[in-house]
C-alpha cells in the first residue's frame, strides 16, 4: 500500500502539502499566461479542447474496463490459496510487459481507432488498481469480515455491503495512480497510432515546429489534468479515507 501512504500524506497532510497544491496550480496557470503573453500566439482552442475531450473519453472508457477487470482479477487472485499461488506470480510478470510493444499489433488489428488506444490504456491502467485491490483484501481485518458474514452479508451482499466499501480507499488510491499512468501513456499512444486526441495534437505541433504552441498546449493540458485531480479524485480520496480506520 505504498501508494496509499503517499496520497494519505498529500490529502490528510499538513497545511504545507495543501499550500503545495495551490502553489503548483498558480505556477502552472502563471506559466500559461506568461507563455501566451510572450509568444502572442492564439491557441486553436477548438482543436485543443476537442483533442482533450477525445483523450478524456478514451481514458474514461479504459478506466471503467480496467476497474472492472482489476476487481474481478483482484478478488479472484485472493479467493483461494491455490489460485493465488498461480495468479499472483503471473500478474507480477504481466505488469512489467511494455504496453507500447503491443501498439503496432493493435493498430494492425483495430486500425488507427480509439479501440487500439483504449486497449493500450487498459494495459497501462489496470495494474495500480489491481495491486491496490489485492493489497486491500489481504490487509482486511479478519474480524470485520467475520462480522459482516455473521450478521448476514453473504454472497452478493458480502460484495456490496462489505467488500466494496472496505476496498473503496484502495480503489481510489489505485485509480489516481492509474489515471496518472493513463495521461502518460495516451500521449505516446495517440502519437504512434495517429488516432486523434490530445497526444496526436501535441505530436502535430511538434512535427510542424510550433514550439511555442506546443509549450502552451502542454501547460494547458497539465492545468486540465490538475483540475480533474483536484475536483474529482482528491475529494473522493479524502471522503472515503476520512473514517476508514476504525481507530
Amino acid at each position: 500500500m505504498r501508494y496509499n501512504h503517499r496520497y494519505h500524506q498529500i490529502v490528510h497532510g499538513t497545511p504545507k502539502h495543501r499550500r503545495l497544491h495551490l502553489t503548483s496550480f498558480f505556477v502552472l496557470a502563471g506559466t500559461l499566461v506568461i507563455l501566451m503573453a510572450l509568444f502572442r500566439v492564439p491557441l486553436n482552442q477548438r482543436a485543443l479542447l476537442l483533442g482533450f475531450a477525445v483523450s478524456l473519453f478514451r481514458v474514461s472508457v479504459a478506466y471503467i474496463i480496467s476497474l472492472a477487470l482489476a476487481l474481478l482479477f483482484g478478488i479472484l487472485a485472493v479467493s483461494h490459496e491455490k489460485v493465488e499461488a498461480i495468479l499472483i506470480p503471473f500478474l507480477d510478470v504481466a505488469q512489467s510487459f511494455p504496453s507500447y510493444a503491443l501498439l503496432p499489433l493493435l493498430v494492425l488489428y483495430f486500425g488507427r481507432t480509439s479501440v487500439a488506444v483504449i486497449v493500450i490504456l487498459v494495459v497501462a491502467m489496470i495494474w495500480p488498481i489491481l495491486f491496490n485491490v489485492i493489497a486491500g483484501i489481504k490487509e482486511q481485518r479478519q474480524d470485520q469480515s467475520e462480522a459482516a458474514t455473521l450478521f448476514g452479508a453473504t454472497g452478493w451482499r458480502y460484495l456490496i455491503y462489505y467488500r466494496w466499501p472496505m476496498l473503496r480507499p484502495a480503489i481510489i488510491t489505485g485509480s489516481i495512480i492509474s489515471w496518472g499512468q493513463a495521461w502518460d501513456t495516451i500521449v505516446g499512444a495517440e502519437i504512434i497510432a495517429a488516432a486523434g486526441g490530445a497526444g496526436y495534437y501535441l505530436g502535430q505541433l511538434s512535427e510542424t515546429g510550433h514550439t511555442s504552441l506546443l509549450g502552451l498546449a502542454i501547460v494547458f493540458y497539465l492545468l486540465l489534468i490538475f483540475c480533474l485531480n483536484q475536483v474529482i479524485w482528491l475529494p473522493l480520496l479524502h471522503h472515503y479515507t476520512k473514517y476508514q480506520a476504525e481507530s
Binding site: R141, D143, Q144, E146, A147, A148, L150, F151, Y162, P165, M166, R168, Y240, Y243, Q244, A245, E246
Partner: peptide, 14 residues
C-alpha cells in the same frame, strides 16, 4: 447468533 468481538469489528465507514 449475535457476536461481540474482542476488537469491536465495526464497519469504519458506517
Amino acid at each position: 447468533v449475535g457476536f461481540v468481538f474482542q476488537n469491536f469489528a465495526l464497519m469504519p465507514w458506517l
